[in-house]
């Protein structure tokens, strides 16, 4: 589904990703762990196509297409979803308006019929209930005045409404209380399926107890320096990154 080959990327002329390779097949969940500043968020932004991140080498193929040739909104319509480490507040745009605009923009690009008002409301209400975000909050401006945990839940609401093929979740577990972590984990697990894949960026073993990954990768200094199964996360938890990088 996703093939990242020898990816190099820089910000403001500073090399951050230095030959990163990673293959994710449909149906798989991959976890990426690594020290602060290793380039994890940079990888997620490069995949989503954020301006300012210059790809200087390598390739990314998503469902057989050259992902790097697509604009951000086209990547979204193709099925890429980025759960942000720091979700953005948008004053004056309600969550409902945001979600509906996004859903219909994606459907339009894919040549699908737009969701009717009734269909959309039914979908959103069900999703918000599943993820424990009060429906009333969806009437408020996007993320404005939301707590850190509520913002992360809101990212999961967006993911559940948009139903991406590939979810890249950047520290979605950070800032969540224990109950919220379980709810969000269930949300991620509900998205698992033979047609979908997930890239989980995390610092914590705890998320991986709920969402058991098929593979764990260690990203240090802009490259994957080690890969393994779910047990690798336990090794990291015990020994830290220093032993791995050495």
């Amino acid at each position: 589904m996703l093939i990242i080959d020898d990816l190099h990327a820089e910000i403001d002329g500073k090399a951050i990703l230095k030959g990163l390779s990673l293959t994710v097949n449909a149906g798989e969940v991959h976890a990426i762990m690594g020290p602060n500043g290793a380039g994890k968020s940079t990888l997620s932004y490069v995949l989503a196509g954020r301006a300012g991140y210059a790809v200087t080498g390598g390739s990314v193929t998503f469902l057989g297409r050259d992902l790097l040739a697509l604009q951000p909104h086209e990547r979204a319509a193709a099925g890429v979803f980025l759960g942000l480490q720091y979700p953005v507040e948008i004053p004056g745009v309600s969550n409902l308006n945001f979600l509906r605009t996004a859903l219909n923009a994606q459907r339009g690009q894919r040549g699908e019929a737009e969701a009717s008002g009734a269909e959309f409301m039914k979908l959103v209400k069900a999703v918000a209930a599943d993820l424990g975000l009060p429906y009333e909050m969806l009437k408020r401006s996007v993320n404005q005045g939301f707590s850190g945990g509520e913002k992360k839940r809101n990212e999961m609401v967006q993911m559940a409404v948009l139903q991406p093929r590939l979810a890249v979740l950047d520290e979605t577990d950070s800032g969540l209380d224990i109950d919220a972590l379980r709810v969000v984990s269930e949300g991620i697990n509900r998205m698992r399926g033979p047609e979908r894949a997930t890239l989980l960026i995390t610092h914590y073993q705890r998320l991986l107890d709920y969402v058991v990954p098929d593979f764990v990768h260690v990203l240090v200094g802009g490259r994957i320096v080690r890969s393994g199964g779910a047990e690798l996360a336990h090794v990291l938890e015990r020994d830290g990154y220093v032993s791995i990088a050495a």
């Binding site: 196509g49 951000p72 909104h73 979204a76 980025l82 948008i90 996004a102 923009a105």
Partner: peptide, 8 residues
Amino acid sequence: FYLESRGV
């Protein structure tokens, strides 16, 4: 970027 990353 947030809006674009959601498909807008």
